[in-house]
Design a binder for these strands. Sequence first.
DNA 1: ATTACTAAGCACCGAGTAA
DNA 2: TTTACTCGGTGCTTAGTAA
Lengths: 232, 232
Amino acid sequence: MAETTRAVGHDELATLKLLALDGAIEGERKASCSTIADRLGASNQTASRRLQGLEEADMIDRDIVGDGQLLRITESGEQALQREYADYRRIFERSVGVTLTGIVTSGMGEGRHYITLPGYMKQFIEKLSYEPFAGTLNVDLVDESVRKRARLSAFEPITIEGWEDEERTYGPAYCYPASIVAGDSEYEPAHVIAPERTHHDEDQIEVIAPEKLRDVLDIDDGDEVSIHVAEQ
Amino acid sequence: MAETTRAVGHDELATLKLLALDGAIEGERKASCSTIADRLGASNQTASRRLQGLEEADMIDRDIVGDGQLLRITESGEQALQREYADYRRIFERSVGVTLTGIVTSGMGEGRHYITLPGYMKQFIEKLSYEPFAGTLNVDLVDESVRKRARLSAFEPITIEGWEDEERTYGPAYCYPASIVAGDSEYEPAHVIAPERTHHDEDQIEVIAPEKLRDVLDIDDGDEVSIHVAEQ
DNA sequence: ATTACTAAGCACCGAGTAA
DNA sequence: TTTACTCGGTGCTTAGTAA
């Protein structure tokens, strides 16, 4: 396991939130310590240290360019903000689950190949308490859900460890408990499965379950399904 | 104007969030410094100080009862949390406006009386840039919107000052710019108007506009309307 | 103009203690 | 048990300075 990243304090998190409000999640943003200091109500030395701290904690990437710096929030920075967001949603909303919507589609059969590998399958049985059907349900997320998908990073996933054989290494994956709704039918248990290293703005999602979801839910390519990932 | 309350630091805000997660917005919650200290990852002296600070800042009410304390988040405490929540919504959602839904209803004609008083009317014309129709549209909010209504407190309102004549005093009110949707019609400009001191869980809302909304939107008692309060 | 180092001051933290 | 005070020690903040 890699060295766990240095934790950030609440002051640093507030600085990170400020950068996020400027759009530093979507891409690089130019800023200077003094402008940040003004908005924080602190000295620019403090702003400088906050940014250094966030960089040390791997929450931002920085390029110092003479008349300021180019800042970008990293994936773990976004996750920290998503966790905060989830807290506030839990405070002010009834439920904090995430419901993702999309269209059933045919993947390239990769999912089937990977999940049936013994190195993964053994962990599924142990950690998910069922033996998954040998295939994944691929779902093309609608635009709104592509964005909502990032909320998953605020949840505590079930971690499937990576492993390796003589030929190559197989990366870790995260599983999120979910229920799948299609029309009037709902199926549980199921899990959203995602590789540890996921691209930003991923527009597809894969689901595993003990049975063949296409059969038990009577769905096929082009049908709409909802994937409800439960709180905790 | 009353003495503006002492500002809270980010550490204190995090403590307030913790209490909110325990449900201290809805009602009184029992807690002790040591349990809070554990969850904060700090000493109970620090927890004690945080609670003192939050009380000083008028964000919580406390009753110390020997084997702990009874804590309740005040309205300004909830507002501070709503402002944070609004920040995170702005980061992760496309829009941070609030859309409230409800049913048109007949008020008791109080609104009409108050808004036509010269002490208020003069300010409306000056601050809203229109002369309101002499009456308010009363809307009974649906349950979900009763809760969402609290989000308004995160927005910057247009403040209508209170005043007094020989007989009595008239309290201040807040106006929030809004557009009103009924069926396929949308009307703008309009403002949600709320007295400064509002009860928790208020289930009705009043709207003013330059024209008689019942006429221009062709609505009557029992019709559903949406009130979109814009960002900023 | 930047960022960031160093050093002085001060505010915060937590142990001990009292009520 | 509690909460909250006092009091050292420490670490954070800011001013000044360098690059």
